[in-house]
Simulated assay, not measured.
Amino acid sequence: MIWYGLLVAAVAGERVAELVVARRNERWGTARGARVTGQGHYPAMVALHTGLLIACPAEAWLADRPFVPALAWPMLAVLAGAQALRWWCINTLGPRWNTQVIVVPGMPLVTSGPYRWRWLRHPNYVAVVAEGVALPLVHTAWATAAVFTVLNAVLLTVRIRCENRALTAATTPITPAPV
């Protein structure tokens, strides 16, 4: 059980690293006229992800969930893949990546790295979904995985709509009205 706590702590540390990058990128975007949108859902997102990190070890310990190697090892691989995909997204977007919806007007959409596939517009959220299932299931915290997945699906519906609107508004050229 101690190793699982350390794994969750490592994921929490990764989240802190994301926040450091996000703050730096927010300053970069703000200096270039970026617009922040969707602030209404952001606290819910922070609460949900914090709740995941608390609930994983809490369920494993309080419900005395067993360690099942046949489930744990594949879920650990999914978790590692999710982290790799997340950082690929962060590196590809560079200073345009953020935990909030912050878009610099006039910049073209990124179409390289994991964003080159038109059928997968939000690969970072694939990483979030995979992590939300895999991290709890590493130690059979199935209730946490289920609750997070349902709540995250609702939240991602709001987030993706917000992000799509912001990206469309920021990348659509504004033509002046005829005089």
Rank of each mutant, 00 (worst) to 15 (best):
L135T: 09
T99H: 10
I174G: 00
A146K: 02
L120P: 00
R27S: 14
R24A: 14
Q39R: 10
P136I: 14
I54C: 11
R121T: 15
L156M: 11
V68N: 04
G51F: 06
W117R: 13
D64I: 02
W3Q: 07
P178S: 03
T149K: 00
A55M: 11
G38R: 10
L135W: 11
R35C: 04
A77F: 11
V133I: 15
N91L: 14
V147S: 09
P95W: 00
P108I: 13
I2L: 13
T37Q: 08
L71T: 13
W119F: 05
A47F: 03
W28D: 08
V36M: 04
F148M: 07
P176C: 00
R165E: 06
Y4N: 04
P57V: 05
G5W: 09
V11T: 14
W119I: 11
A169C: 01
L53V: 07
I160E: 07
P176M: 00
L48M: 05
A17N: 09
A34S: 15
L151P: 13
A166V: 10
L48R: 07
H49K: 09
V21I: 15
A77I: 12
R65A: 12
D64W: 03
L19C: 04
T175S: 14
L62S: 05
L137W: 01
M45V: 13
V104T: 11
D64C: 06
W61S: 08
L109G: 00
T172W: 04
W28K: 06
T144C: 12
A9Q: 07
V129F: 14
G132E: 01
I54Y: 06
A166D: 08
A31V: 07
R86Y: 10
R116P: 01
V101I: 15
A10G: 07
Y42F: 15
N98I: 10
A145K: 09
A77N: 09
A9Y: 02
A143H: 05
A55D: 12
A166P: 13
A146D: 00
G40Q: 03
G106W: 01
F148R: 05
L167R: 03
G33A: 03
W28P: 03
A177V: 15
I54L: 15
P123H: 09
V150I: 15
V68A: 13
F148V: 14
M75K: 01
A127V: 10
T99P: 06
A134L: 02
A84Q: 02
V147W: 02
N91A: 15
T92F: 10
A44F: 15
A55L: 15
A58H: 01
A82G: 03
A134W: 01
T99Y: 03
F67I: 12
V20F: 03
P57K: 00
A177T: 15
R27M: 10
A77S: 14
G33K: 04
A12I: 13
A77G: 15
G51A: 08
L52H: 08
L137C: 09
C89W: 05
E163W: 05
R65V: 07
A31I: 06
V68E: 10
V103I: 14
W119P: 00
L151Y: 08
T50C: 06
T172M: 06
V11A: 13
A9P: 14
H49N: 14
I160Y: 08
L137N: 01
R23S: 11
H139K: 03
G132W: 01
H139V: 07
N98M: 05
A60L: 01
C162G: 02
I174Q: 13
T50M: 09
E18L: 05
